[in-house]
């Protein structure tokens, strides 16, 4: 099992005819993703990887059953594209766009709540269940990172995710589903909101979160553990322990404000809740072993 996406998830691709959209659609299909159709306004009648293209999502869902929408849409147009997918009743949406305006992201997250949908991203690589399916732009062919297994991974980063996941795989583990919530200050979906899915998934034996300074997402994870929403072992790696205070370094979401969001606060909250915090990427795999998480 996996969460959010597996081989049976029927995926529509918005922006399928663009350079990036066409490129990653091919890789999504290569991995095993069931891409059923695509949408690009004005390109109806075309095909990408033999999948039909429609002008609008509304038109596409007349002809296809769709569970999820993958957006390869520029940041300025992302709000509209997300709203289009939501209006058509799609409940799982992933956007990898880097540069979505902050106020647009507030509206996107608010709309997702109203529709009881999950919008993952932006500024992320997306979601992948290794050796099964993906929505996004992961180099799934790098075997020492994207290996199937029983560790759930959630991350605010791209390259750092490869770094940390490689260390998990090095210890003989693999990944059930990796969710990139993204590096923006207002991600569409937050860490704690995905925990119930990992909790319910039998295959997932532990969760690793790759967080960083700024925001309160890691504190919310600690709270979810405290409330008993999540009961499996959890290991966190947090970047930016030594980052200079008040300096915008790293992702836009990573700035310490109001005495909140410092890595020390996050470590305290997570440790109190019973999670383990790794100081270095390599320690993540070691801590999973220490917790006797089965391989």
């Amino acid at each position: 099992m996996s969460i959010f996406i597996d081989k049976s998830t029927k995926v529509l691709v918005q922006g399928i005819t663009g350079k990036e959209g066409a490129f990653w659609t091919k890789h999504m299909i290569d991995l095993g993703t069931d891409v059923v159709c695509g949408v690009t306004p004005g390109k109806a009648g075309q095909h990408v990887e033999d999948r039909p293209v429609y002008n609008t999502v509304k038109e596409a869902i007349i002809h296809h059953e769709v569970d999820a929408s993958m957006l390869f849409v520029p940041p300025r147009l992302t709000k509209d594209a997300v709203f289009e997918a939501l209006a058509s009743g799609i409940k799982k949406i992933v956007t990898i766009a880097d540069g979505i305006p902050l106020h647009d992201m507030i509206r996107i997250r608010q709309a997702a709540k109203d529709y009881k949908a999950l919008v993952v991203g932006g500024n992320t690589s997306g979601v992948i269940s290794p050796e099964e399916a993906m929505m996004g732009s992961f180099p799934h062919w790098i075997e020492r990172v994207y290996k199937k297994g029983n560790i759930g991974v959630m991350t605010r980063s791209g390259s750092l995710t490869n770094e940390v996941t490689a260390m998990i795989v090095e210890k003989g583990y693999g990944v059930s589903t990796l969710i990139g919530v993204g590096g923006d200050p207002v991600p569409g979906t937050r860490f704690a909101e995905m925990l119930p899915y990992y909790e319910a998934d039998e295959e997932t034996k532990a969760v690793v979160i790759i967080g960083e300074l700024g925001g309160t997402m890691e504190e919310e994870v600690a709270e979810a553990i405290n409330k008993g929403v999540f009961t499996k072992p959890l290991v966190a790696f947090l970047g930016g322990r030594t980052a200079p205070k008040g300096q915008k370094m790293g992702h836009a979401g990573a700035i310490i404000t109001g005495g909140k969001g410092s890595v020390e606060d996050k470590i305290t909250a997570l440790t109190k809740a019973g999670a383990l915090v790794a100081k270095r990427p390599r320690a993540v795999g070691e801590l999973l072993e220490e917790l006797n998480v089965p391989k």
Partner: peptide, 15 residues
């Protein structure tokens, strides 16, 4: 490359 990785390398250098 990558904001998160660069921040982590920054930490590792300090360690």
């Amino acid at each position: 490359a990558g904001a998160g990785l660069t921040t982590t390398v920054y930490d590792l250098i300090n360690y």
